[in-house]
Amino acid sequence: MDKVKEKVSISEMFSKFRELGMVLFIIALIIFIQFRNSNFLTLENIDDLITNAAILSILAIGMMMVIITRGIDLSIGATLALSGMSTALMVSANQNMHPVLALLMGTVVGMIAGGIIGLLIAKLNILPIIATLGMMNVYRGFTFIIGDGGWVSAYQMPDSFVGIATSSFLKVNTLVWIAIILYIIAYYFLNHTRLGRQVYAVGSNPGSARISGVNNDFIIFMVYSIMGALAGLCGVLWVSKFASAQGDTATGYELSVIAACVLGGVSMAGGVGKVSGIIIGVLLLGILQNALPLINVSVFWQLAIQGAIILFAVLSNVLIKRNSDKKNLARRVL
């Protein structure tokens, strides 16, 4: 019996070990940065860091679900911009619009955008990469058209709207609260509801999922709709936070979101991904984005560093997996 127990623990150790390793790495990184610049671990900077990471973290929830179903969504930067722009135009035209209504509107815009992509992928069998690449440009184009090539800036927006992202509750920024609430919901949904588990089933083995009576098409449609809804919500938050809506808002932001997921241990092969994992991934990216300027790394280095980190993360994931598979094989007695 002992032998069996050992087998269990080794395979499970792998996932735990990975998260533990990431946490240790983050701690080491924090210590290093703190030594280089003592302003890093001030309350003010930490608050800034978390607030900045909030939007990324919300998007990572949706992206994780998409990747778990073996998909990818490159359109979220464009969806975010579209929802942000349309909401900004709406509130600047109706100055007394309730901020909650604005949030709701942005979410719906995003959900429709995501739902269209979901239909293309689930019903017309278009590869996720092609569908989202195509729609990314469509949505980006719409953003420019409705914004008439210009931008909506702070003075056109009512204070209540800008207040969404600047207000705080218990000294913690509203954005962070929204993220926390969404994380609790996502955790519950993915781990404690049938629909949530079906997301994993579809990603882990689409064929058996269909045989077990899972409606694969609906699950795919659902995850892209949720992704779109979250991107729409973030669009409103983004515009409120930066107090401006532009046509090229969040261009390329999808890469950061995918990076956060990959760093958080979400497997591109589908079926694997944990809420706790993406929190770590978001934290790591958030720290890097916050700290690089603090330790005098030029902004122009950031993109390359981010690319190198994604590459490193995906490749090392594969190498670790290979190593553990090899060890499993070697344990077979011949």
């Binding site: 890469l255 993109l303 390359a304 981010q306 690319g307 994604i310």
Partner: peptide, 9 residues
């Protein structure tokens, strides 16, 4: 996707 970010970076 990763090399795209890297090369542009």
């Amino acid at each position: 996707l990763s090399t795209m970010t890297l090369y542009r970076g």
